[in-house]
């Protein structure tokens, strides 16, 4: 993907969507991003189904991993959402592991990162926003709108405060989606740029082999960082979802 146009770096080419699954995929606009989504979902389900197959009292490695995944997200739901958190456990679990596997799989060479597309992350954050608003309206009815006017605010300040609260509430869609998208995209651009350095400087030969080697070392370190970012961003997305759900269930 690098150094295609003689001497410029095409760091964005990696995000280009292509039809996948041959002619059938082309006819229904199934992209390689969707292939990765299927792989990620399949791996999540495989972890749970294959891992729990022994149903052992003392779990083996894979079962322990599946149980750890389950209890980690369950703990997050119970801690963050509080009372009534168990109801939202499946959706938080799916969001967390869908994003986590998407992020981590994207780090493999030639694998597409579907979380690096704003359209995908925006859809997910919009889904969370709609879910949260729906839950809030269902739990509290019209009383939900008192959320936008915190108690103890002078009446004169009310219009301004309500405006700010509504903007901050709506901006959750943007912040949630852009945070994930920008992190994943930036990481992959940097990895691509340094990989291109290695190739271009390496081809130049001679003295340029030194910076080429340094770029390679940097890329190895960056890859570790990107693993951290991939995990962290999935966690951030899930925990913010939990916090928003807490607000929806308990209104502050």
């Amino acid at each position: 993907m690098a150094a295609e146009g003689h001497s410029s770096i095409d760091a964005l080419g990696q995000f280009t969507l292509e039809p996948a699954l041959g002619a059938i995929g082309r006819s229904v606009n199934f992209t390689q991003a969707n292939t990765m989504m299927v792989v990620a979902s399949g791996l999540v389900l495989a972890l749970l189904v294959v891992g729990m197959r022994p149903r052992a009292m003392v779990p083996g490695r894979l079962q322990a991993a599946a149980e750890l995944a389950y209890e980690f997200v369950l703990g997050m739901c119970n801690d963050q959402i509080g009372h009534g958190g168990k109801k939202f456990f499946p959706v938080v679990f799916c969001l967390f592991f869908f994003i986590l596997f998407g992020n981590v799989l994207g780090l493999f060479p030639y694998f597409f990162t579907f979380t690096s597309h704003i359209a995908v992350t925006l859809a997910m954050s919009t889904f969370v926003f709609c879910l949260v608003t729906f839950v809030a309206l269902k739990e509290h009815g019209l009383h939900f709108f008192s959320y936008f006017l915190p108690k103890g605010i002078p009446m004169a300040m009310a219009p301004l405060v309500i405006l700010i609260e509504i903007i901050s509430y709506l901006s959750r869609i943007i912040s949630l989606s852009v945070r994930l998208f920008a992190n994943m995209m930036a990481g992959h651009i940097i990895l691509d740029v340094f990989a291109s350095f290695v190739v271009m400087l390496g081809l130049a030969g001679g003295i340029f082999l030194i910076p080429a080697g340094l770029s390679l070392v940097t890329n190895v370190a960056l890859f570790g960082l990107e693993l951290l970012v991939a995990t962290l961003q999935a966690y951030v997305f899930a925990i913010l979802t939990c916090i928003y759900l807490h607000d929806a269930v308990h209104l502050h």
Binding site: V28, T31, S41, V44, L45, P90, C94, F98, V120
Partner: peptide, 20 residues
């Protein structure tokens, strides 16, 4: 493809959610 991936993504996520 930009929008179609979202539609497919929604379907895939829905299947993941239901099965899970």
């Amino acid at each position: 493809l930009t929008t179609s991936q979202v539609v497919w993504g929604a379907i895939i996520f829905a299947v993941l959610y239901i099965v899970a």
